[in-house]
Design a protein around this nucleic acid. Structure first.
Lengths: 209, 209
DNA sequence: TCCAGTCTGGCAGGAAGTTGCCGATCGGTG
DNA sequence: CACCGATCGGCAACTTCCTGCCAGACTGGA
């Protein structure tokens, strides 16, 4: 593999980097949802509990999905270090401080990935990751805060995604309009959105709708 | 393959049905975006111009993306029959009126597909497809209507997705607020959305943001 | 029981978004 | 040039959304 490779599709990425994941001592990862690096998970789930250090940064929005939270907790029990940040982060994996994978855009339905091994680049990306890591907060801190929102979130997202007005959505969910709107506001804050359109985009990105 | 199979992931779907696409005389397809059946495209793009009948139904929202439109036009030149409908449609492929593929939900990042061969099921799905087909309008009819919106749509979607207020977005795009809002309304209508949240979800689904 | 903290939901006032109306402007066309 | 149609964008009335305020309900201690 040359110093900079473009890989098209997660299948191919996985095929070409599986051995690296298998042998990794340290994996650092930033992602917006659980799906992005799903392929890589096939590895370190079963094997690799020992000395390997796994750090992951997500956005708080992932806490809105019960399944996702359960999964993250499970990963923590397996030794992974998980933090959350409200910053915009590009999806990134750094393996053993020697190789970087940056997720690119989706073209014709397949996502492309840049695989970098050039030391300066890896160093640069790593330093950015470290900065983001320091600025991120541990999972536990957010977790409680979102516990009750998580119960209602799927229903509220459904109502929002169906194009209902607040009035009817609140009635449907048997809530006061004020309470419904409070929940929507919390939801938007969790998604880091400042408009409902943006919230819709983010919710879809996270697979919440 | 039994009468009803569940296939996980587009790769596997493609692997198991590629020979069917290659030999197909008639393909009917309903999708919300171009990506869904992307794998199937690897087939009938190059080969198969002769007697094979290809019908596709999309939603008007696909017209908002210039690249998508160009692609659809190209497919039409290659003999495909393309129509648009404002109805909600589940993503479906019917091959030679003998086999049906229904797209399911995304779980852990991979989409599942149901492959049906049981004649009653295929017959039932086909009849629904035919009904939708009759209710759908040809691409050409919409195409002109969206021509000018398409130019502005990407910018407007960017502004919306960035969480800007109408006021600032309009200033940024050098439009009057009234005009900006008019465009947003047209956009939402094209997406079949009745709220901005819903529009955000749909736009994301179509990969427009 | 009483208290403190939390969640609820009505109300109100304001911000943001939606829409009809209409005159101004621009690019053809007769 | 006059006319026509289409678009633009300001205005205004209206709807929807956002949020601070606060009283009432509920909960878990002390």
């Amino acid at each position: 593999m040359s110093e900079t490779a473009i890989v098209r599709g997660e299948e191919e990425l996985f095929a070409r980097t599986a051995h690296l994941f298998a042998a990794a001592d340290e994996v650092a990862c930033a992602a917006n949802d659980l799906n992005t690096w799903a392929a890589s998970r096939r590895q370190h789930t079963s094997e690799q509990h020992g000395a390997v250090r796994v750090r992951k940064i997500y956005r708080p929005g992932v806490l809105l999905d019960p399944g996702t939270v359960a999964h993250l907790r499970d990963r923590e029990r397996h030794g992974a270090d998980i933090r959350l940040t409200t910053d915009e982060i590009n999806e990134t994996i750094i393996i053993d401080r020697r190789l970087v994978i940056l997720a690119g855009d989706v073209v014709d339905g397949v996502r492309s990935y840049s695989v970098l091994t050039r030391p300066e680049l890896v160093q640069g990306v790593s330093s950015l990751f470290e900065a983001a890591w320091r600025g991120a907060r541990p999972l536990a801190g957010y977790s409680a805060e979102f516990a009750e929102l998580r119960l209602l979130a799927p229903k509220i997202l459904d109502m929002l995604a169906s194009g209902s007005k607040d009035e009817t959505a609140a009635r449907t969910l048997d809530l006061g309009v004020r309470t419904y709107r409070r929940k929507v506001a919390e939801l938007m804050s969790a998604l880091g959105a400042t408009s409902r359109f943006q919230a819709g985009v983010r919710a879809r990105e996270l697979g919440l709708v």
